[in-house]
Design a protein around this nucleic acid. Structure first.
Lengths: 122, 122
DNA sequence: CTGCATCCTGGCCGATACTG
DNA sequence: CAGTATCGGCCAGGATGCAG
């Protein structure tokens, strides 16, 4: 497969991933959709206190454009729209878990040893 | 251990991690330090074309403050300073690999199935 | 209910110049 | 060599109001 060889290429690829997750609210939205949860716009507005309507819509649209979430519009009045993760979005879990586990390492690694390998260089 | 239970807590933890990696140059700097590489200030300036001295110093200081890199000053003239990853910084690799692998999934998952679990909920 | 349009602010970041 | 100091542009994102 095409593992990145140069630091620059690897950095670019990871940056592309980070860019999908960046933004003040994306992760929190994602976490409210994991495990197959389906949420309406108003659900998310309630679940994410402090988010403005503009940002809620904007971040959801970006997540949709990036292929992470599916937006479903029900043609009815009053309008109903719901959001759920795509399979690819669900597949983010292991990566987020890896970050969580890494951050948990901090406690035991303020003093420690070494040994590591470069990402992409299995 | 304390795996996050609520989406809010998990989101906060992952966001904290992302915040360490955010910034225009952090990842590229990190990738130039993986595998135990030791780089001087001027090495990094050369390895990362386009970065200004201000940003180079600033991002390195942040990485140092966040416990990802070690800054070593050699008291001599001309001055010499080098940077290397802390053990915790090295331990970032698996997490970055997970993101790389996730992004590689995109190809095969534009059409797909489902099933996933929430991060932190092993 | 579910958004988009507009205005505005803070902070990131680049450019340039200067220092021990 | 390895930074610090200063100025300023740009834009993510908050507040508010309007629309289908």
């Amino acid at each position: 497969m095409g593992e990145p060889r140069t630091p620059e290429a690897a950095a670019r690829d990871v940056e592309a991933v980070l860019r999908l997750l960046e933004g003040r609210w994306k992760l929190e939205l994602l976490f409210h959709l994991f495990g197959g949860q389906v949420q309406r716009y108003s659900d998310l507005e309630r679940l994410v206190p402090g988010i403005s309507q503009k940002m809620l819509a904007q971040q959801l649209r970006q997540l949709e454009a990036d292929g992470l979430v599916t937006r479903t519009v029900y043609p009815q009045v009053p309008p109903k729209v719901d959001y759920r993760l795509t399979p690819w979005g669900q597949a983010l879990c292991p990566a987020l878990d890896a970050m969580l586990q890494w951050s948990a390492l901090r406690a035991g690694l303020t003093e420690g040893h070494d040994a590591a390998r470069a990402p992409g260089a299995h």
